[in-house]
């Protein structure tokens, strides 16, 4: 009798032990899965820096960062990245000239003016706009915006920064409007009522109370949207052309960092050649710029939270 009890205790203990081992294994497996995202970042950093360092052995960092001529695909190549950076920033900035007022306007309308019924119809429609792939916007820029611009401005280049800017702007509108609207909706209703009770109009409540209260999130949505515009690839590849140029004239054809990478990758590139390495060097710059902007966006929100 006693022996049987001992035995069953032992079996039980074995069972518990087995169970605990299984639980621990599961935890380890899940941890390994979660660490893949860390490995991705490490992978990006290592791959980009390895090839960038090897690129910088052949091209001086000074020439790369301060040179004003980018002729990477020519026989006698020059690797001054500024024209690509300029093209990228120009399209992102001009695009945000369109997207910021329209995105913020829509956000204010949806958050402050629209009835619940209108909101329920309009919001999903705007969400569709954000779900459309960028290649479709690229097609739209090429086949609709550019011909339209050509009618208004006859001497505009077929491939031009303006058309791409407009399309990029349209693409980032939903991002700004939905992030800003969320921020404005988060402003407590009591605060609005306080202002209405003082005889403020809707306009005054929106502009003087709600927007200032949500300002940090709104501005961070601008930063995120611009960062998205900087990384946008397909629109600029289709509509902006492939002429690296140090210009601020939106009527000209330009090249961005992303469209350069696409241009090189679409051709025949031998692994390990200098031109292969330019993909990584330009990609590194792009990665750093967008990373910094995303960090800034997060810092803006964080600072606000500490204040109140």
């Amino acid at each position: 009798m006693y022996a049987i009890q001992e035995k069953s205790k032992k079996i039980n203990r074995n069972k518990i032990k087995k169970r605990n081992v299984k639980e621990r294994c599961i935890k380890i497996i899940l941890f390994l899965l979660a660490s893949i995202s860390i490995l991705t970042t490490i992978g990006i950093v290592i791959i980009l820096s390895r090839e960038t360092i090897s690129f910088l052995r052949e091209v001086s960092i000074i020439e790369f960062l301060t040179g004003t001529e980018w002729t990477a695909l020519f026989a006698n190549p020059k690797f001054g990245v500024l024209p690509l950076v300029m093209g990228t920033l120009m399209i992102a900035v001009y695009g945000s000239f369109i997207a910021i007022p329209i995105g913020l306007g829509s956000a204010i309308y949806l958050s402050e003016y629209a009835s619940e019924k209108t909101r329920k119809i309009v919001k999903p429609l705007l969400e569709i706009l954000s779900g459309i792939p960028s290649i479709v916007y690229g097609y739209f820029a090429l086949t609709f915006i550019t011909p339209l611009l050509q009618k208004v401005i006859p001497d505009i280049n077929i491939f031009n920064a303006l058309s791409a800017s407009v399309a990029v702007g349209i693409m980032i509108i939903p991002m700004i409007s939905s992030l800003s609207e969320d921020a404005m909706k988060a402003v407590p209703n009591e605060i609005r009522q306080g202002a209405y009770a003082l005889g403020a109009t809707k306009f005054e409540v929106s502009i003087k109370i709600v927007v200032p209260a949500a300002l940090s999130s709104i501005i961070s949505s601008f930063v995120l949207a611009i960062s998205r515009a900087i990384g946008e690839t397909m629109i600029v590849s289709l509509a902006a052309g492939s002429t690296p140029k140090l210009t601020l004239n939106p009527l000209e054809s330009v090249q961005t960092m992303t469209s350069f990478i696409v241009q090189v990758a679409s051709g025949d590139v031998t692994h390990g050649s200098l031109i292969y390495k330019t993909i990584f060097a330009v990609g590194m710059l792009l990665f750093l710029i967008t990373l910094i902007m995303n960090i800034i966006a997060r810092m803006i929100i964080k600072k606000y939270r500490e204040e109140y």
């Binding site: 407590p188 605060i191 009522q193 202002a195 009770a197 003082l198 005889g199 109140y308």
Partner: peptide, 20 residues
């Protein structure tokens, strides 16, 4: 209504100062 509310003021249940 805007003018009315400037003459008939209101204080609410929960204090609701503006974030200013």
């Amino acid at each position: 209504v805007v003018e009315l509310r400037t003459k008939v003021g209101m204080v609410f249940q929960k204090p609701n100062p503006f974030p200013k």
